[in-house]
Simulated assay, not measured.
Amino acid sequence: MPDPVSILSGLCCGVVIGFTLGLIGGGGSILAVPLLLYVVGLADPHQAIGTSALAVTINAFFSLSSHARARRVRWKCAALFTCAGILGAGLGASMGKIIDGQRLLFLFALIMLVVGTLMLRGSRNGDDAAHGPERTAPLPIVLYGVVTGFCSGFFGIGGGFLIVPALLAATGMPMLNAVGTSLVA
């Protein structure tokens, strides 16, 4: 039975995660896993990863409704990306289970650094209008979906911090649309 401090810590962490996920369409898992391990006190990295996946999925579902009402979801792209991502996630989850939890956390930290660096580098190129017209070719969407799904399944994360940049790279859609569309996946 969790003590009241753990329950309060968990609730506060959930608010932070939900706010971040709703605001930028990602970041739930990159916050949830460390918070569950180091603030809430879960000892097993695999348990923290699984718990964060459930929490992020629930938060994404509720955040999706506001983005859908604002017409910021590209539904066809979301469906294609999500279906491809499911295939990759199955393979990634199978492989992630055989990796030691501490090694998995190290690899997770590395991928967070790489994605963060790429996002910072990309933000120097100007605003959304400079990206040109959106691309709708299915092959890049499927390829990015499979790779992102693999990483999501491997690390046991929602993948929003990977999905948003992948959608931007595959389609050139505006950032707000990538955020809204990412919540479907």
Rank of each mutant, 00 (worst) to 15 (best):
M119H: 11
T57P: 08
M95G: 07
L8H: 06
W75F: 15
G149L: 05
L105H: 11
G122K: 15
G172W: 01
S52A: 12
N125W: 13
K97M: 14
H67L: 06
G28H: 05
V146Q: 08
G22W: 04
S63D: 08
L11K: 05
L139T: 14
T181E: 01
R72V: 06
G92F: 07
G27S: 02
V142C: 12
A79C: 13
V179N: 00
P165G: 06
V115P: 07
G126E: 11
P140W: 05
T148M: 08
T20C: 12
T181A: 04
A169E: 01
G92W: 02
R72L: 12
A60W: 05
L31D: 06
P2I: 00
G145V: 13
N59I: 03
C151H: 05
R124P: 13
L113Q: 06
G172H: 00
A60D: 03
V115W: 09
R135W: 02
F106W: 15
I98N: 14
L23C: 10
R69P: 09
P133F: 03
P34W: 09
L107N: 12
L176R: 05
L105K: 13
I157S: 05
A60V: 08
A129E: 12
A93D: 15
K97F: 14
V164W: 02
T82R: 13
G153S: 09
I30L: 09
L8S: 10
L110D: 14
G132D: 14
L107C: 15
S94Y: 12
I86H: 07
F154Q: 04
G27V: 06
A137F: 13
L21Y: 00
T181C: 05
V164F: 02
R74P: 01
G92N: 09
L31A: 09
T171L: 03
A78P: 07
F161D: 00
G149D: 08
W75C: 07
T181D: 01
G50W: 09
T136K: 09
L167W: 03
G28Y: 01
M175E: 02
G10F: 02
G132P: 11
I163L: 03
G90Q: 15
A137C: 07
L104K: 05
V179S: 04
F61R: 10
L167K: 01
S65T: 10
S65V: 06
G116V: 14
C13L: 11
A78V: 05
Y38K: 08
G14P: 04
G26S: 13
P140I: 06
M119E: 12
L87S: 12
Y38Q: 11
F108T: 11
A60E: 10
N177F: 00
T181W: 00
P4I: 07
G26V: 02
I17T: 08
I157F: 03
S63Y: 04
V164R: 01
S152D: 08
I58D: 04
G85S: 11
G88V: 09
I86D: 06
A70G: 11
G88K: 06
P138D: 11
L183I: 01
G85H: 03
P45V: 03
I86W: 10
I58S: 03
A130W: 10
V5D: 06
L110W: 09
A169I: 01
I111Q: 10
P2T: 00
M112H: 13
A89I: 07
G96T: 09
C13Y: 04
A32N: 00
T148W: 01
T171E: 01
W75A: 13
A84K: 04
F154C: 05
V146F: 12
D127E: 14
G88N: 10
